[in-house]
Design a protein around this nucleic acid. Structure first.
Lengths: 140, 140
DNA sequence: CTATTAAAAGACAAAAAGGTCTTTTAATAT
DNA sequence: ATATTAAAAGACCTTTTTGTCTTTTAATAG
């Protein structure tokens, strides 16, 4: 989704083949995943010539966290480091406190960053896409 | 494994039924997992009356990291936050730096903690097992 | 209107993870 | 020795994840 938004900001709409190549995933598998994302409303698509994927202007500022929760649930953000069901403040597992600090940082990261913020920083900073090895031109 | 060591420190050797109950996992599934851990040398076992699982004195001070790597590889400790194969310092993904900080903390945690250190802190501190809801007596 | 392009839908299939059960082996206690 | 206990081994099954392919639908260009 970040890659799509980066391309959108450049006025392009990438298709399955392009996205699959960038993230080094199989074509058909990537296609299926985006079918789900479109159905869930996170991404929009256009068929036919010049078609491809793009982000709804209202969705591009969603924090990563909401997208992750919609796709795989909130276990990462609230769950125990050992995966115990009964672990909480009253009944902490041996890793409870220390893992809690890390989990807080994860929450902080995915709450403050959005598809748009990551896309913009990829374009603004001297940071290549991470996806492919194409060279980014700097603004200067 | 931490639960086993806690029990070992109390002079007991828990069996599959007890461990499975504590971690709220199915009996047979738990049994299979420990068969693997025994085969890999992380845990030892004794059959028959009074039998059960216990940690080799030499293994109980292994950092969690080594155990995790042996079981599921080192992806968690070196991998990209977005799961990209091509992501590195020269070609960073949009999350590279920020996720790197979190990954460092994870590495720090699993490098400094061992089965023994966690077992001891469960027994020493006012910290219940996290596993069951049994009350811990304080030392005082 | 027709050809072309590209995603959507849905059927399949392979592989991995999760889970169950039976039989065998190795301890211990009597 | 024998009975009992408990893990080891391995067969088997179910569910989920991953991956592939064909057909259909929708958009655009000419």
């Amino acid at each position: 989704m970040v890659y799509i938004q980066i391309q959108n900001l450049k006025g392009k709409r990438p298709g399955v083949a392009e996205i699959a190549h960038e993230i080094e995933a199989p074509f058909y598998y990537t296609a299926k995943i985006f079918q789900r994302l479109v159905k869930q409303g996170f991404v929009r698509s256009l068929k036919g010539k010049g078609g491809g994927f793009f982000l709804d202007p209202e969705k591009k500022d969603l924090p990563l966290k909401e997208i992750i929760i919609a796709i795989e649930g909130d276990e990462l953000f609230i769950g125990c480091g050992f995966g115990l069901k009964n672990c909480d403040e009253n009944n902490p597992c041996p890793l409870h406190h220390q893992y809690g600090l890390i989990r807080n940082d994860i929450n902080q990261l995915v709450t403050s960053e959005t598809i748009q913020s990551l896309a913009l920083s990829s374009l603004t900073n001297y940071v290549s896409l991470g996806f492919s090895r194409e060279k980014t031109e700097r603004k200067s």
